[in-house]
Design a protein around this nucleic acid. Sequence first.
RNA 1: GUCCCCAUCGUCUAGUGGCCUAGGACGCUGGCCUCUCACGCCGGUAACACGGGUUCGACUCCCGUUGGGGACGCCA
Length: 491
Amino acid sequence: MTLRTRFAPSPTGFLHIGGARTALFCWLHTRRHGGIFVLRIEDTDQERSSQEAVDVILEGLHWLGLDPDEGPYYQSKHTEMYLATAHQMVEEGHAYLCTCSKETLDALRERQRESGEKPRYDGRCRNRTEPVGDKPYVIRFKTPSEGEVVWGDKIQGVIRISNSELDDLILVRSDGSPTYNLAVAVDDHFMGITLVLRGEDHISNTPRQIHLFRAMGWEVPEYAHMPLLHGSDGAKLSKRHGAVSVLQYREEGFLPSALNNYLARLGWSHGEQEIFTVQELKQLFDVKDLGRSAAIFDRAKLLWINGHHIRSSSPEQLLPELARHLGMSGVTPPPLEQLAAILPEFQSRAATMVEMAQKCRFLFVESVQPYEEKSARKHLGAGMLEPLTELHSILSGLEVWSIASLEEAFNQVLHRFGIPMGHLAQPVRVVLTGSGASPGIFETMFMLGRDKTLHRLQVGVAYVTPPPNKKHLKKRVEGSGEAVHRLLRKL
RNA sequence: GUCCCCAUCGUCUAGUGGCCUAGGACGCUGGCCUCUCACGCCGGUAACACGGGUUCGACUCCCGUUGGGGACGCCA
């Protein structure tokens, strides 16, 4: 029998990182074993489900590359099938009609909790097979009162739950709609699911669903309950931790390959390997190798892995994202071919695509002023006037604008003033990029191009020119350059 | 409260009775490289929760304690 797994989110919110991990493990395990990955939308709760949520989940899965082989199926379209199953169970004596009101049940639970018992329905309607007048009723499953349910969980090992722990669960609500456990069992059966892989918060549902399978005489699938993902406080990931949509990670400049890599390493490992491509994961991942303890989400390591993937990605994979983030940071991104030329210089300098956009932004803006204050104070003293002027002069006369010629020009200035490399490179860097950190200075000048480099040097010269008194300045202004005009206006 | 699950460095993990004075990775940190920032390279920091067994020998097996998590809905 071919393996069939399913990922079954309920569309009551976005797909967060924990759900994404469940989907990833399901998908990877299925890829590894040549099975079918089914997507099923669990929208039996019409009140809380929404189409927007479905769309966002689909988009998130697609971004991660976890497209289903089948589906999405919608449970809301299978209502009749669920109800037919429930009625068959009533007919065959596996289920009954319960007319107890919510108030009655709340009171019952309250009493049980107080006396230290596990809250569960007491079965007072157990023999009812017909409605009582027009009194509203729900359909309940008649859980065996004796014995226990045992299954060999592919991750957790043998789990046994005593039937005395189980409630007579509601199959159909008083408004006639099916509930979760009924819908899941029916769908898992009719969709031919052979392996139910889900979070361990579903362990308590498993014996209930197994009971439904048995009552209907269906073959019970295999189960694998994976440990949950926890927030930094050690509790199940929730919105309180700022558990956000996986799409938020795209906005923050993470690569899907990196997110998959990181998520896969939470609860799973392969020797001492840390970096995996999706291809490798598809060949290596198996749920039987999963650990049994919960893992805490660690953004620092995600960042490191993301940096790794950025470094090992081809420009083609990165360019559209770089352009997108540049656009969002307010600069008009140049054509992709032009971006391709500069991208390699930034691959080793960014942990996220957002960071990369920030770091290469200086190439595309009109002005890099105001300079980063600390760097300017440190590197742009009055003493830089002559070296910068000299460099500008030599660069102006350069016939070929290349790394080699720029280096040669630099060396001339260095030699003439007898200063070390750092004493010229840093001031030039601040003047060209506005900050004290950038790719190599020759590469920076080369990428920036002749016009922008010369212009920014000129602006820099003006910046380091000691503030003269106005009279003196006015005299100089006659027939002098743009930069001085600007300086005058500033005074 | 009841039931279920878990327990190795701060975090992710390797470890399946002797190879462990516990290995790797992130982080933090010292250094190298160096025009800056990264990358890269070399080094350091830091853990078997506790108590009983079993055994010639326990991180590894068993029991208990403690701690953490999950589940107890006409939510999924």
